[in-house]
Simulated scan of single mutants.
Amino acid sequence: MAGVNALQWLNLTRHGESTGNVAYRSVLGTDAEETGITERDADIPLSGTGRAQAAALGRWLAALPEDERPTLVVASPYLRALDTARIALAEAPYTVPLRVDERLRDREQGVLEGLTPTGVRRRFPAEAERARRLGKFYYRPPGGESWTDLALRLRGFYRDLEAEAPGGRVLVATHDAIVVVSRYLVEGLSEREVLEIEKEPVGNASLSRWRQDGGGLRAVSYNDSTHLTSAGFPAH
């Protein structure tokens, strides 16, 4: 991807733990059809743990060598991601511009919003079957987005980012699906490869990094939580 490869560093982080993550975990393995999340997706806040994770991310930023420090931070407008960026930047002993881009928002689930897998199977059995048949990469729920839809909006985002910050060092604060699809774009992966990668959940406040080596961006780390485990958080 030419636009991405014009950057010097590309760093992606998933937001810290949110109250939505906590609510979803609490119903896993139960017979619940709904997640119990009451806020709209854009308004789900960080949990106390998530705020602490964001601060640990900020301490990692503070310790970076000068030639690796971000020159720009771009965040999803969703509260959990934007607050992750704000909290992290408050820990850094240097000033970095922060801007918001709606193309970094989480994948939209449409009519399936707020449902557990059990809820989808019971309330929308035809959609559950369609998702099984098409596969995660191409399936689009009614009113929602497929992974290929995410790829389309991210291609535009990265093209614009290259024009705004050529040769820049960028930190993107976003969501798990955006991290995975970004890797698909940066590394030129296939559907099979990206779905295999997606089997490993992207950890809250984890880091995925790519560095310019003269021929394009090359992976440095993916889904790395060393900065969190060293701060006393359990491994994801």
Rank of each mutant, 00 (worst) to 15 (best):
H175Q: 08
L79Q: 15
Q53H: 09
S221V: 06
V120M: 11
A88T: 00
T71A: 09
R140A: 09
L154N: 12
G216D: 00
T35M: 07
G3E: 10
E200K: 15
P117L: 02
I44W: 10
G58E: 01
E91R: 07
E145K: 14
T13H: 06
E34Y: 11
E187D: 00
I87N: 11
E187F: 08
V120T: 12
P65R: 02
E17V: 03
G216P: 04
V181D: 01
E145I: 10
Y158F: 14
L89H: 05
P45D: 11
D43I: 00
A90C: 04
R155G: 01
R155P: 00
W9V: 10
P125Q: 03
Y94A: 07
T71N: 04
R130K: 13
K136F: 13
V202C: 01
R14G: 02
A54F: 07
Y138A: 12
Y24C: 05
E34S: 09
P70K: 01
G167W: 08
L185G: 05
P166W: 14
Q212W: 13
T174Y: 12
Q109F: 02
D224V: 10
R122H: 14
A163C: 05
T38K: 13
A54H: 11
S18F: 08
V111S: 03
L134P: 03
P70C: 13
G3V: 01
G216V: 00
G215L: 03
Y184Q: 10
G168C: 11
A81P: 06
Q109R: 02
L57Q: 09
E191A: 02
S208D: 10
D83I: 09
L112T: 02
D43Y: 01
E66L: 14
L72D: 11
P70A: 13
E198I: 01
K136N: 09
S225L: 02
G188S: 02
K136R: 15
G50L: 10
N21M: 14
E196I: 06
R122Q: 14
E127L: 15
V186F: 00
E164I: 06
R211E: 15
H175S: 07
A42R: 08
L152Q: 13
R211C: 13
A131K: 07
I178N: 15
V186Y: 01
G143A: 07
D41S: 09
E91W: 04
S221D: 00
E164S: 14
A173E: 10
L10H: 11
V73D: 10
R121A: 15
E108L: 15
L171P: 00
G203F: 07
S146Q: 07
A62T: 04
T118Y: 07
R159K: 12
H227F: 08
R123N: 14
D160G: 01
V194N: 00
E108Q: 14
A128G: 05
E191M: 06
A32V: 07
R218W: 00
P65A: 05
